[in-house]
Design a protein around this nucleic acid. Structure first.
Lengths: 337, 337
DNA sequence: TTGAAAGCGCTAACAG
DNA sequence: CTGTTAGCGCTTTCAA
């Protein structure tokens, strides 16, 4: 009976009874090891058909409990509010499924407490691997998981206790800065020091991007004041406030803006609007991260697009090989205007 | 031993041994029913402490298998590439967790086959409820799940066999059309019929939006040709191609554009760029869906923001009340410019 | 107050 | 070729 509202779910015992074989035969057939048991193809087909007719689906709770290889791979991700993380999750899911793994993803809303709670929930799910994306404290997650024998991998933001896959932030930022400076020269006839907006000076990516930002200025023969680096956090409001504070603090002159993420860019654009730059063209700008509407509507903004497919290839190479030791892979990002 | 690389995970039996009580007592304590068993607070505290020291986490596979209430709530979602779905997933996860449920989300990449596969995987997870978001064939999912006694709910796109929570597409589209027509009048000194771009004429939302679009024209005393409704699909490329075809087919005159989603809007903006509208201001436009960069960078585009928090409140009201019968809740969307 | 014991649905020896 | 059996880790009676 495939009827609606059937309360008890079909089990392999039901299937065994219906097809006149034992439950273990059903299990073997449904798992595709009927060859190993030398079960006839005819019988295998019959059982498979009956399973289908009954709308049978294996109970993962029971199956995974028994076989003790969880086949579950977890990912925690800070937010779903930009294309970068969205595409990370989407790519992750499909690559995991392609390997016969069960992906479980959860979002921590950039909340350090939720981050740890999420990691613990992942342990309860018996994940084999946990991919910690953009985690504020990757090493704590690694320690937590290691205590249960679970391997972790840091994505986007590196840690020191597990493999890390990140963008080449230094090279990306340096090249981005170079491009903005070039646009600045085109616009104003000379290069001027830029303003760096967004991110936290405590996180690795921001530090590396600042280093690239600085070095590009040095190579261009420009001196850069520390005041020009506003690592004010990622939230749009913070970027907006930081800019307002910067420009009310004194007579400032900037060649353009290096914005550290699309999220911060929202605040920057908001600030430009409110500052009455409506009619004027945008100043020379670049953003470390990509968004389709930014490239379409403000197509003079230089953008860095992190190479998500390549990053996740690297992730699964490490997972597939079972490399659990500390290592760092830096993936060159792409450039779009 | 909380040491790294510990292979076997801590179980309640380990905890029982360490604390000198039985496994069942440990289970009761860790589940918070120690009062019911009149276990002393002192003992409860001791066991809890030991569990913490050992980094114990309950095995959900075992726990859920035994107790047979899965506490898992599943959601399938077409894409993570826009703010609407991103915020649906984020809100869903946090509301589910707030209720002590375990959310499992999976993305189907707008692929009908993946949609069914995902639904089946959800059944394997023993979900109690499945929220099908923007599903191409919601009723098939409902039937599949009903056969296993699992309740479903349709979000964003309605079905006929289960409760549905959707935006008030008709009223939203009508009001959006009205606003675009007003902008058209301001711009050109008169109202002209608009062009509808994006979506599938087969899906409920597109049909309802078209109805609102039409009625707003009628009320404004405008006649609307069928040719003005390009339900060409959601993908950016399709919108772009449809516009190109429309405008090369003859001398056309339009008062503005009604775009059926931010995804289609990408294609529309792409087309405007390529059509050489670079220097010109955008035509009067509106979009059914919201994106922060669109409102910031092209702030003369009218946008409908679907009320995700209200929609998910409705979803969980239905889930909490266990209402499984067909019903439809239409949530009024919000307007932003 | 507490422990022993049964069993959730499934897998994987092992014995036929 | 196939069935019987022993658990996976946990919850939940039931009996003490």
């Amino acid at each position: 009976m495939t009827g609606i509202g059937k309360s008890r779910k079909t089990t392999i015992y039901d299937l065994a009874e219906l097809s006149g074989v034992s439950a273990s035969a059903v299990s073997a057939i449904l798992n595709g090891n009927w060859q190993k048991r030398r079960i006839s193809a005819r019988l295998a087909e019959k059982v498979t058909r009956i399973a289908q007719e009954q709308g049978y689906e294996v109970n993962l709770q029971a199956s995974l409990l028994r076989s003790n290889r969880s086949k579950i791979i977890g990912m925690i991700v800070p937010k779903y509010d930009n294309r970068y993380f969205g595409s990370i999750v989407e790519t992750f899911e499909s690559m995991a499924r392609a390997r016969g793994l069960f992906p479980i993803v959860t979002c921590t809303r950039r909340d350090p407490a939720l981050e740890l709670e999420a990691a613990r929930t992942m342990l309860s799910w018996q994940v084999d691997w946990l991919i910690a994306t953009g985690a504020t404290d990757p090493d704590k997650i690694t320690a937590l998981c290691a205590a249960s024998g679970v391997s972790t991998l840091n994505l986007d933001l590196p840690g020191t206790q597990a493999p890390s896959v990140i963008s080449d932030n230094y090279a990306g930022a340096k090249e981005l800065t170079r491009r903005i400076l070039l646009n600045c020269e085109k616009r104003y006839g000379e290069m001027r020091a830029l303003l760096f907006v967004g991110g936290r000076a405590t996180d690795h990516n921001t530090r590396e991007r600042l280093r690239g930002f600085r070095d590009a200025h040095t190579e261009a023969g420009l001196t850069l004041s520390e005041e020009n680096m506003l690592a004010c956090g990622y939230a749009p409001q913070k970027a907006e406030m930081a800019l307002r504070a910067f420009f009310t603090a004194g007579e400032r002159c900037t060649g353009g803006l290096f914005v550290n993420s699309t999220i911060s860019l929202e605040g920057v654009v908001q600030w430009l609007r409110r500052a009455g730059a409506e009619a004027e063209p945008l100043p020379p700008m670049g953003c470390f991260d990509w968004d389709p509407f930014v490239s379409l509507l403000a197509h003079d903004i230089e953008m860095v697009k992190q190479d998500v497919p390549a990053m996740l290839e690297a992730v699964f190479e490490i997972v597939d090989a079972g490399e659990t030791g500390e290592q760092r892979r830096e993936i060159p990002p792409l450039f779009v205007t």
